[in-house]
Design a protein around this nucleic acid. Structure first.
Lengths: 250, 250
DNA sequence: CGATGGCTTGAGGGTATTCAAGTGACGTGG
DNA sequence: CCACGTCACTTGAATACCCTCAAGCCATCG
């Protein structure tokens, strides 16, 4: 856990707590204490190195997970060997929970991309609670629907935004607050990884960043980026999107 | 309702019944009769001409809908005026139901693209039933999760498939069964519309179709397409996808 | 009959990808 | 301590793919 991760947390607006368990997740806010206790009792937490595969597409889905620290990518692999990254999850994120019913097998794969601590909880407890507790079922629905809206945005972005706009959008989401003045931020993980997260090659990423530098007067040194005019970045990026700027309501 | 629509129904593997209400929708299979009665009593059905806007992004979401006949597109519009089509819905499809909670406003817009009969049901009844009937809440979750998996596929397709592959995938989904021999099918709606459904321009669609013709020996006359070798189409299309062929489990 | 809308085709340009080479930072091992 | 390999990143050149603009075809319909 080097400087990079610390910087990441600062800019991701996720509190820099070393351990993020169930308590930080909105889905479980206000859940029955007995349920949470059962989950915690049945959980198991492990440290994994970069490269560890948490689950593969078509694996039987018996557990769902929480990222306590580090980063995990959710992706799919084609027969050709190409890979599409669906999302890259920061600490404090739930994953695998969407395979609740679906014939009990995962639709995506999950892999650690930066050394991570991950907690696994049995899916059966989640299923049971949904059937038993209507108010939790409602919270679960809200949780899933929120994820679905994020995915719809993703479709829009990959369809009509060009590379620099997608990158601009990524940067704006990192900042995530309405700041007018100059901003300094740090990229949370490797540029190569951001590139595939945004559905482009790393060369394209590099050129997109160069374009933002020249067009918007951004300064880049390694993973550190200085932005003079948020307004310029916002108008450059968000004009190609259906959401008004402070679009990250999460 | 001309020849075109009839042909469409035949190939979409949706039964060609003139009226498709709640009863044909898996979500409501086995739902409490009292609930269904209440829904039907509170519903209102209307015919709409092509171009009618059912709801707009950010509208208050007080109703959800069922397409009884015709076609409805779900889309988003950017500040630039560009439009991204998320999906095009055939008869027998539910829509608008994903805005159950989300601050009660729609994240997408919906517009009739081929004269349609549409039934509206009050969202409040759906909300109530989910809170009151755990088994229905479970069905609702399954329904939403299924939709989310479809969207994930969509992200994958728009990220790594080229135009002809996306078109090939669209054709395969129309056929939707494991057929080995030659197949004749009819496009369900305008090519222009299919093009934007697949995230490409109509010119690109035309050229993609031409490419399938020359590369795979397909014959095209208007909206009628003859395919000699399903295997050739499948290997051409599905090698760029993470799903094995008969991927339409719906 | 002209107008319209859906579709096709050609030409040109822009964006992203691929292939290739090169840089710089970092860690390992001699 | 330096040599070396590795890895992330950058840059250039060539190419592939898709988009835009423009023209033209064809069927439908008033």
């Amino acid at each position: 856990m080097g400087m990079k991760t610390t910087a990441a947390n600062k800019c991701q607006s996720h509190p820099a707590t070393p351990e993020l368990g169930l308590d930080g997740i909105p889905l479980f806010n206000g859940a029955a204490p007995a349920f949470l206790d059962k989950l915690k009792a049945a959980s198991s937490t492990h440290d994994y190195a970069k490269g560890h595969v948490v689950f593969m597409q078509d694996d039987v889905a018996e557990w769902f997970y929480v990222v306590n620290s580090g980063w995990v990518k959710i992706f799919r692999q084609t027969l050709d060997g190409d890979e599409v990254i669906i999302d890259i999850l920061p600490a404090g994120t739930l994953f695998g929970e969407t395979e609740l019913f679906s014939n009990h097998s995962f639709a995506n794969s999950a892999e650690v991309v930066q050394d991570a601590k991950i907690t696994a909880y049995p899916m059966s407890l989640l299923r049971n609670q949904i059937s038993a507790d209507p108010s939790f079922a409602v919270k679960m629905l809200e949780h899933i629907l929120h994820g679905q809206r994020e995915q719809t945005k993703e479709i829009e972005h990959r369809t009509i935004m060009n590379a620099s706009q997608r990158l601009g959008c990524f940067l704006l989401r990192l900042i995530n607050v309405k700041k007018i003045g100059p901003v300094v931020l740090h990229l949370p993980y490797d540029k190569t990884l951001i590139a595939s997260r945004l559905g482009m090659q790393s060369e394209t990423f590099s050129r997109a960043l160069a374009r933002l530098k020249s067009d918007l007067g951004m300064r880049v040194r390694g993973a550190t980026i200085e932005i003079d005019s948020m307004d310029a970045l916002i108008s450059y990026t968000c004009s190609a999107c259906s959401n008004a700027f402070p679009c990250a309501e999460d």
